[in-house]
């Protein structure tokens, strides 16, 4: 009987030790999550209850760009210089097409892959029926105009603009942004090491946004929408109906002509 009691006491003691060590381990995990700033994991209802949200201290691997804050979503037109000192504005917002903005540098090693890819018209195929490629480098005060002229691919618009890098808070080169023209919004962005990677990511971003990636049929294909407008204009003109024609308005006259 005494042996049994001693044995039970030993078992209880061991179990107590196990529970204590588990509690301690759990406490350490909670403390570590707090230090990482992942309060959402610890208390999912905290934001709703307290109305406060803290940013997590996210660290990326060396060489990988840190994600930007999620509130930078509106696109800004690209204003800068041509390599010969001219002035240029490329509208990316309030236009019918999407724009792929490629932030490149003449000096970075990874960018060399993209300069090379863009120089080949067969390789620079873009997702979407009407996506426009625009290369943006730092301003002429930071880039060699001669080197830019040497690298600038024929058939691709190039803007030298430090202000564009600032506007879009570009963290690293090469960096890519896909802008939806009609909405004036950034559909996707990120860094990549190869043109193939960028093409895959772009296709995904456009598909996620419900845009046509192949120029084929899609409910939200704005290229087709623009074509429809063109066709409608053409048909109406053939029928002798021009803009302002009374037959286009229920009251027989344009709204601005009515008293």
């Amino acid at each position: 009987m005494t042996v049994l009691v001693v044995l039970l006491a030993v078992v209880v003691g061991l179990l107590t030790l196990l529970v204590v060590s588990l509690l301690r381990s759990h406490a350490e995990i909670l403390r570590a999550l707090h230090e990482l700033g992942l309060n959402d994991v610890l208390d999912p209802d905290a934001d709703e209850r307290d109305g406060v949200r803290s940013d997590a201290d996210i660290r990326t691997r060396p060489g990988v760009a840190t994600p930007r804050s999620s509130d930078v979503r509106a696109a800004s037109d690209l204003l800068g210089n041509t390599p010969d000192g001219g002035s240029l504005r490329v509208a990316v917002s309030g236009v019918d097409h999407s724009t792929l903005v490629a932030f490149l540098s003449t000096g970075c090693l990874t960018c060399a892959n993209f300069w090379e890819a863009f120089a080949d018209p067969d390789r620079r195929e873009l997702p979407g029926a009407d996506t426009r490629l625009v290369i943006v480098t730092k301003g002429l005060e930071n880039e060699s105009p001669a080197r830019l002229e040497e690298l600038a691919p024929r058939g691709v618009t190039l803007v030298a603009s430090s202000s564009a890098w600032d506007d879009y808070e570009v963290p690293v080169a090469p960096y890519f942004l896909l802008v939806d023209g009609p909405e004036g919004a950034i559909l996707g962005e990120g860094a990549a090491a190869s043109w193939d990677q960028v093409q895959d990511l772009l296709g995904q971003a456009m598909a996620d946004a419900g845009l046509d990636t192949k120029g084929g049929s899609s409910r939200r294909s704005r290229a087709r929408g623009a074509q429809r407008v063109e066709r409608a204009d053409e048909e109406l003109e053939r029928a002798g109906i021009l803009p302002g024609d009374p037959s286009l308005y229920p009251g027989g006259e344009p709204p601005e002509a009515r008293p």
Binding site: S76, D77, L79, G86, L88, R89, A91, S93, G94
Partner: peptide, 22 residues
Amino acid sequence: RDTIEAFGLSANLPTGWDGAIF
């Protein structure tokens, strides 16, 4: 950003317009 300017010419562009002075 609306205005392009170079070589003694400048243009304030309407929304959605491209512009170039070269």
